[in-house]
Design a protein around this nucleic acid. Structure first.
Lengths: 192, 192
DNA sequence: CAGTTTATATACCGAGCGGTATAATTACTG
DNA sequence: CAGTAATTATACCGCTCGGTATATAAACTG
């Protein structure tokens, strides 16, 4: 059991640094100080290792966001809650978050993309639902809920990635004020 | 010479679809209907092929943007010009644009990222310079020019990628109005 | 203690990787 | 037409890839 978690940790480090395709199984087991059969005993395949890594680590994001995304009649407040919860998750799991992002932008026929696709979709639906729930407040959106969802996540991710790059490793504070101004900027854009 | 361009075209198709790391040299030459030594005659290595592909195709983006980014005393107008020029370039070279984007989000230690890095930097400086030039109009930015540049490109890329995904292959119009509203949204955010 | 399950290592597999030595062919040049 | 330079193909290189057959330990279970 100790080995299993160690393998996951080493895999995250390497995938984060070089990308799934560029990392060999040999490299992972060497870093973990074990041998191949041990890895294959736990995960079955390199792809299985990636899937396990993603799904287990994604749990936290999923439950946290679901909680925050419960629409309470105030779009701005809900978006603020979600943004803050999201940023908090991302900043306390920077490597995993950056791995997720890099995989999200992978070409669509890439194998590794297929592993993140369901996560991204789940994610997307959580955000999209906010805008669907807020129809009476935002008015008829002409099926632009999806654009809003993409735009909202895009803005936040942009700033997050920028911050993750600037201070790699360092603990940087993203204050509630910054998030609020980000959300405000987004809201103003879609209202005008 | 005909072969050389054909190789570049096939490489773009494959890199775009699967990503640099996931495509083998064998696969490229088979698609191009030639053999390995021909590829190595022209490009020296797989990495060399990537570099040639990127630099040649990036020329258009670079010159077009440089032209559009000449600050004329009106930030909004300049940003609109740049955004429009950028969108036009991207939409008429969708595959290359998407390849660029996917490579931009690659992990920093990935080999292929090292090939796009200089292009991204060049790109970034062109945008950053707009904000530096506009100091008297925007006031003291407290060295936030970089954040503005990242944010500006981020917003546009978000929407572009969304559109590229929705209508892959189809020719979708992004009107000047949409771009203007995007720029306006961005401007309002940084002014308030 | 015997039997079984869990966990790990040694040693290996075929396939594909990026890359090349050599040679033949084609196209230009005197 | 001879000679040279530019292009292309055949056949191969060592290496790493993801993955596994087999054996052995260690840890539970009766």
């Amino acid at each position: 059991m100790e080995n299993k978690e160690n393998i996951l940790k080493c895999a995250l480090d390497l995938f984060y640094a070089k990308g799934y395709d560029a990392v060999g199984v040999q490299e992972i087991v060497e870093k973990a100080g074990i041998t191949k059969p041990t890895l294959y005993y736990y995960f079955g395949s390199k792809y299985g290792l990636l899937e396990t890594l993603l799904t287990t680590k994604f749990q936290l994001f999923s439950t946290t966001l679901r909680q925050a995304a419960k629409y309470d009649g105030d779009v701005a407040a809900t978006l603020n809650r979600v943004a803050f919860a999201y940023v908090k998750c991302a900043m306390s799991n920077q490597k995993f978050y950056m791995l997720l992002m890099s995989m999200f932008y992978l070409p669509r026929e890439n194998e590794a993309y297929k592993a993140v696709k369901p996560l991204i979709r789940e994610f997307f639906f959580i955000i999209k639902k906010i805008f669907q729930d807020a129809k009476e407040q935002l008015g008829n959106m002409n099926h632009r809920e999806e654009q809003f969802a993409v735009g909202f996540m895009g803005v936040i991710n942009c700033y997050l990635i920028m911050i993750c790059e600037q201070g790699e490793g360092k603990e940087i504070q993203i204050t509630e004020d910054i998030i609020r101004s980000l959300v405000h900027q987004f809201m103003h854009g879609i209202n005008s």
